[in-house]
């Protein structure tokens, strides 16, 4: 890895982590979700600083090239993340369904009560 590439990668990763921290501060993302993204940032910096480590691990594990290993890990992580997101989405769906139902039932009750009050006023 050339020195310029390394420096470029480190700068990009630092910007990336800065953006994550900023969105935590602005409450755009909850801390628990951001942990995943921060870890990927730290991992990227380590990879850039000690590329020999990546080569060593991929050799030990039997990957043809280190880039194969990187792609493999990235894809698995992406799948895991998407799966998690669909679980969260389903939960949120359940919650919003419950909210719509309960609010609608309450509105119905309020309307009925209003009607009763109006009737008793008239009589």
């Amino acid at each position: 890895m050339s020195l310029t590439l390394r420096i470029a990668l480190i700068v990009i990763t630092l910007i990336y982590m800065f953006l994550i921290l900023k969105s935590i501060r602005n409450k755009k993302i909850s801390v628990s979700f951001s942990i995943f993204w921060l870890i990927t940032g730290v991992a990227l910096i380590i990879c850039v600083l000690v590329p020999q480590m990546i080569e060593w691990i991929s050799n030990k594990l039997g990957f043809a090239t280190p880039s194969n290993m990187i792609f493999c890990i990235t894809i698995f992580m992406a799948f895991y993340l998407i799966f998690n997101l669909t679980i969260i989405l389903s939960k949120e769906n359940q919650k919003s369904k419950l909210l719509v139902q309960e609010v609608s039932l309450l509105k119905k009750k309020v309307e009925n009560l209003e009607e009763k009050i109006n009737e008793s006023k008239k009589s």
Partner: peptide, 20 residues
């Protein structure tokens, strides 16, 4: 009638009826 404040699909609508 009950007016659902957002479209829920047939299942969610029927369930509201059961809750009622």
């Amino acid at each position: 009638h009950i007016n659902l404040i957002h479209n829920l699909g047939i299942g969610g609508a029927v369930q509201t009826g059961y809750k009622y």
